[in-house]
Design a binder for these strands. Structure first.
Lengths: 153, 153
DNA sequence: CTTATTGCAAAGCGTTTGCAAGCAC
DNA sequence: GTGCTTGCAAACGCTTTGCAATAAG
């Protein structure tokens, strides 16, 4: 059984703000709530539109200025991006995981393999490298988008 | 001993162009040569400046229109990016590898671990996912930038 | 000659910033 | 009140695109 020692995420964030002399404003509370309830992966536009649909309009500037606070406080992090725009994922309280990204439908399958983690640590030791974070993304086709056996793009 | 079955990269690229009804122009030859001789990792600006220094000025438009051809033909590929601009690496004739990226000095250490590759395939099979490519980057501090034993960020 | 390619300058798009007004503490 | 925040609009940096001139096959 796993006990998640939950100083609740909201507390954690407010704490971060306090320690840095920053205010817990309405905007920040709104975004925090949204992130908590969101599916996990999002970009700035999705966030803004979703809030707007719920009657809470925030300017792009505010979004762009606020997200870094959530990143620095460890609530969310930026995911790998190949092009276009920044994407974030909710990490606070979530286990670490890596991604399978479907190139056709965009689905993201999260997975976590202890063996992979262990091997990565081994590689780091071998190169006398001190890891801070790692990102592994495998891109390809999910079972729904590649139903025929043996097909290759 | 490893025999690299080298249809030479230039041949490979010209072949790609021919098959697609595209021309092997002076600009494209210039870039191809540069990529062949470059250190492996670069961005558009580095490419452009370097060529300019060697007396071969190309417009940004040309660079931006040409690099995708090299990507599609399998000569180079885009690397992971966390922010800012696109970076590429030379892959044709190189073994597949992953990256250790030093957050302080920017050094990139390439490595390849067969065990990691195998485990990734296992994960894909488990999720009935057909991989096309993967990117693994471990970010942290290299031995030169983190000389003290046992330190952690 | 015909079609692809290049450079230029303008447009696009995500993101950042200066500034004055507004809110948190 | 004082200082951090916000929105607005302008600025930015990277990348893309329309167009007329040019080179490749």
């Amino acid at each position: 059984m796993k006990i998640t020692l939950t100083m609740d995420q909201s507390e954690h964030f407010r704490d971060y703000l306090r320690r840095n002399g920053l205010a817990f404003t309405t905007s920040r509370r709104t975004i925090l709530t949204w992130i908590t309830e969101a599916t996990g992966h999002f970009d700035t536009e999705e966030l803004r539109e979703s809030l707007a649909r719920h009657g809470r309009k925030l300017s792009p500037a505010t979004i762009y200025r606020t997200l870094p606070l959530f990143v620095r406080s460890g609530i969310i992090k930026e995911t790998i991006r190949t092009g276009d725009k920044a994407r974030y994922e909710h990490v606070y309280g979530h286990e670490h995981h890596d991604h399978l990204e479907c190139l056709r439908c965009g689905r993201i399958i999260e997975f976590m393999d202890p063996g992979l983690e262990r091997l990565q640590e081994k590689v780091c030791r071998k190169h006398r490298f001190t890891p801070v974070e790692h990102r592994l993304a495998i891109r390809g086709y999910c079972s729904r988008c590649m139903p025929r056996k043996g097909r290759r793009g």
